[in-house]
């Protein structure tokens, strides 16, 4: 941590502590994103600051109360009663975060997002906010609104879902918990009644949502659905693919375990929980896949390709 960062924080801490008399050390540290220990070090610096060097000129802090009761009392700093204005980076990071919320939010929330954005850019006068943009594939607004309502009132929903791997429409009954985004796509995180497990559903694949009368039940903490999520699924298998360089895009689209370079391409290791997903990927890539390990992992793709080619032959379409 640099002095610049510390001074930036102190300039907000002084007005904060005046606006929050008897502030709690732990909560204040949390607000400023530092440890309680760092916060006490900050107070120790402030204790020597003021308009001059005489005792009456200095900012007064009850250090005993801070260290023993965890309470902060700061006085004699009327001249620093408002925080410093936002930096361009602060406004921009907040503006982008609000825009990310708007991509996902139901209608009544997006109204609040828009007015907050308006005030923020007004207060900061930042033209730079147009320099960064984003888009999230978040499906239909109507779907998001219904899901947000179901989450709020706590009822189960019946989805009409175009599954990516089963290549079939399913109608799972789920307890909806949260709308989230990962890697540019919006998801519903929910408890699946059929699977009796946590599942995520991409919003742009949800064709319909029907609210039920059944109250959603408690299923404990949501797991982290980050890129490591598959690691913790016991049914996931490690598959290694040797690929042509033109198939390198898959390392950017799917969570890969490892990538290594080969003379004529690359080798990737994938965690696969669903054989149908792997079959689709292999068929999609065709001859860009040089080899599959373990070899049996390609059996499904081979059988599906043979069946498809037989159908083309039957149709007399293979010329």
């Amino acid at each position: 941590m640099t002095s610049t960062e510390q001074v930036g924080r102190l300039l907000a801490l002084v007005p904060y502590l005046q606006a929050h008399p008897d502030a709690d050390v732990v909560r204040t540290a949390d607000t400023f994103g530092v440890t309680p220990r760092q916060l006490l070090a900050d107070l120790n610096v402030l204790w020597y600051c003021g308009q001059g060097s005489l005792p009456g000129d200095l900012i007064e802090i009850d250090m005993d109360a801070a260290t023993s009761d965890g309470r902060i009392r700061l006085t004699n700093a009327d001249y620093l009663s408002r925080p410093l204005r936002f930096t361009a980076d602060e406004v921009l990071s907040l503006v982008i975060a609000l825009r990310a919320i708007r991509e996902l939010a139901p209608i009544e929330v997006s109204t609040a997002v828009d007015s907050a954005l308006h005030k923020l850019t007004g207060a900061a006068g930042v033209a730079a906010s147009e320099r960064v943009s984003l888009a999230v594939s978040a499906g239909q607004e109507g779907v998001r609104d219904l899901l947000a309502r179901a989450i709020e009132i706590g009822v189960a929903v019946r989805l009409t879902y175009d599954g990516p791997t089963r290549a079939e429409t399913s109608t799972p009954l789920v307890d909806p918990i949260r709308l989230s985004t990962r890697d540019g796509y919006a998801y519903l995180d929910a408890w699946s009644h059929e699977r009796n497990a946590w599942r995520t559903y991409r919003l742009d694949r949800i064709a319909r949502v029907a609210l039920t009368q059944d109250a959603a039940t408690e299923h404990g903490e949501l797991p982290e659905f980050g890129s490591g999520w598959l690691d913790r699924r016991s049914d996931a298998a490690v598959i290694a693919l040797d690929l042509d360089d033109t198939a390198r895009w898959i390392t950017e689209y799917y969570p890969v375990r490892s990538v290594s370079e080969l003379p004529d391409g690359l080798r990737v290791e994938l965690l696969v929980a669903d054989p149908a997903w792997l079959r689709g990927l292999l068929l999609r890539l065709g001859s860009r896949v040089h080899s599959v390990s373990p070899p049996g992992a390609a059996d499904g793709a081979a059988a599906a390709a043979a069946e498809a080619l037989a159908l083309y032959a039957h149709l007399s379409l293979v010329q």
């Binding site: 924080r9 606006a19 602060e90 990071s93 947000a148 985004t181």
Partner: peptide, 26 residues
Amino acid sequence: HTVSALAKLRAAGIEVDSSRMAGIAP
């Protein structure tokens, strides 16, 4: 940057509520 921006708003007496809306997590 967002932490320090929100700390400034709180320092200006604006009580930013970070615990609500658990159902939306972009």
